[in-house]
Amino acid sequence: MKYCAFLRGVNVKGTNMKMADVCQVFSGAGMENVSSVLASGNIVFTSDKNAVALRAVLEKSMSDHFSYEAFLFVKSREETENLRNGNPFKKNDDLHVYAFIGNEGIEEILMKEFNDASKAKHEEAAIINHIFYWQVPKGSTLDSSFGKILGRKDLKDRVTTRNINTFDKILKKMA
């Protein structure tokens, strides 16, 4: 089965790694047809194991090799398509849209945080099929009240984000 592993916290805040090295770790852990998409920790591969088993194996392999506490989320091609296709927001060149990949139930926690945060003009959020989507004006992602929440330590092993456009690149690689 084809999967994408979405790594959290790669190439930010001192956790720097080359995607070629990450791909070698995945191959060493038994994954096949391994390749990366962008430098932000999106690894496409095939395996006959299920996503739960893969997550445990890959987090341990990454942690051991890079000497950091690795967090990642493994999604099948179908789940990755659902992440892309569930986007409720219309394309607007002035706005970024992010999909959140995380543990079960994280979307409700994120929506509560979003509802409690101050918002910029055109900043919106929605939950579609248990996936949290966030639209924010370009240039405001890290400065927004909600954006600052995303760096909290209590969320680090529970969620990661990707710009909606990243899914097009990942799905092309998975084809």
Rank of each mutant, 00 (worst) to 15 (best):
W134C: 13
F100H: 04
D48M: 04
R162E: 08
D94S: 07
I164C: 04
V97F: 03
L7I: 14
V136I: 15
K169W: 00
N115P: 00
S118C: 08
Y98M: 14
R55E: 08
T46R: 11
A51W: 00
D116P: 09
G14Q: 05
K49A: 10
R158G: 04
M174A: 02
D93S: 13
E59I: 00
F26A: 03
D154K: 03
L72A: 02
A51Y: 01
L95N: 06
R162C: 01
F132K: 05
V136T: 06
D94E: 12
F73D: 09
L58T: 00
H122P: 05
M17P: 00
A120C: 15
N50S: 13
E124I: 12
T160H: 03
E78R: 08
I127W: 07
A53Y: 07
L38C: 01
G30L: 10
E59S: 03
N115W: 09
R84E: 09
F73P: 06
R162L: 06
S47L: 12
E123G: 12
G139M: 11
M31I: 11
C23A: 15
L95Y: 10
V52M: 07
K13D: 11
E123W: 01
I149H: 06
K91H: 10
Q24D: 13
R55D: 05
L110H: 02
K13L: 09
A117C: 05
E69V: 06
F89K: 02
H122E: 15
N129D: 15
F6A: 03
G139C: 05
G147C: 05
K148Q: 08
A51T: 07
N42Q: 04
G30D: 05
E79D: 14
L58G: 03
E59F: 10
